[in-house]
Design a protein around this nucleic acid. Structure first.
Lengths: 115, 115
DNA sequence: TTGATATATATCGGATTACAAGATATAATG
DNA sequence: CATTATATCTTGTAATCCGATATATATCAA
């Protein structure tokens, strides 16, 4: 029953939008950015990442463009769209409310532990 | 794409263990306690609750006992076990780390909104 | 040359999870 | 009598993440 991995569910699009909100990036770099910024707590798997990118692009929240540079593998760089920024705002609000609600319930437990 | 419901994924057992950590309760009361304490942000559905209770009982993290009171519907009251308390501690730690990691990534966005 | 490692994208199937919907049943209230 | 609140339970569906696998290039070491 120790599946902390389930915690990620529902937050993948939020995290992708959040890193693209600061700079356009290609898939591999997005995964690295999330890992680095989370202090290696969140590890993005490629079986999760790429389908999520297609879904976001399909929904018009991000826009991808292929780059064919010489002496490098072709890669697709994504940028956040206006719709994506609106979605991000809505999702960060939802996350804050959710996190607050969870803390209200488990708060007593963690207070005990640190006491 | 507006499924905040997915946020709950993986946290259901944590929330149940957290409320049972304070007092034994039967299923219906657990759902109410979570709703109330979350300020009505978290709404527990019974198709989620009861399977989760069986799973937790099966794993030895909670213990259920039927009460057959006169002039009342039979109901099953659950208590948290020692193993459940250990699991709760582990899960609250995992949650705190996860929430911190997410905030590290989306933090910039919410700071913009409140600025 | 060969092997390992890092970069980079992509797909499929399995497992887990939450929820909607519906069934069942009692007590209290209008 | 009808409705609402209480209380438990099951089934099927949809969503999501991840492991595994495949492809392909560049670099570095043995």
């Amino acid at each position: 029953m120790g599946n902390e991995r389930e915690l990620l569910k529902g937050n993948t699009p939020t995290l992708i939008l959040a890193v693209l909100h600061e700079a356009p990036m290609h898939g591999y770099a997005i995964a690295q950015a999330i890992e680095r910024r989370s202090g290696d707590i969140l590890k993005f798997k490629y079986g999760t990442l790429y389908p999520a990118l297609y879904s976001l692009e399909n929904a018009g929240l991000i826009a991808g463009e292929w780059e064919h540079l010489e002496s490098e593998r072709p890669r697709k760089t994504y940028s956040i769209t206006d719709a994506g920024r609106a979605e991000l705002a809505s999702r960060t609000t939802a996350w804050s409310q959710f996190a607050l609600a969870v803390n209200n319930i488990i708060g007593g437990v963690s207070r005990e532990q640190t006491a």
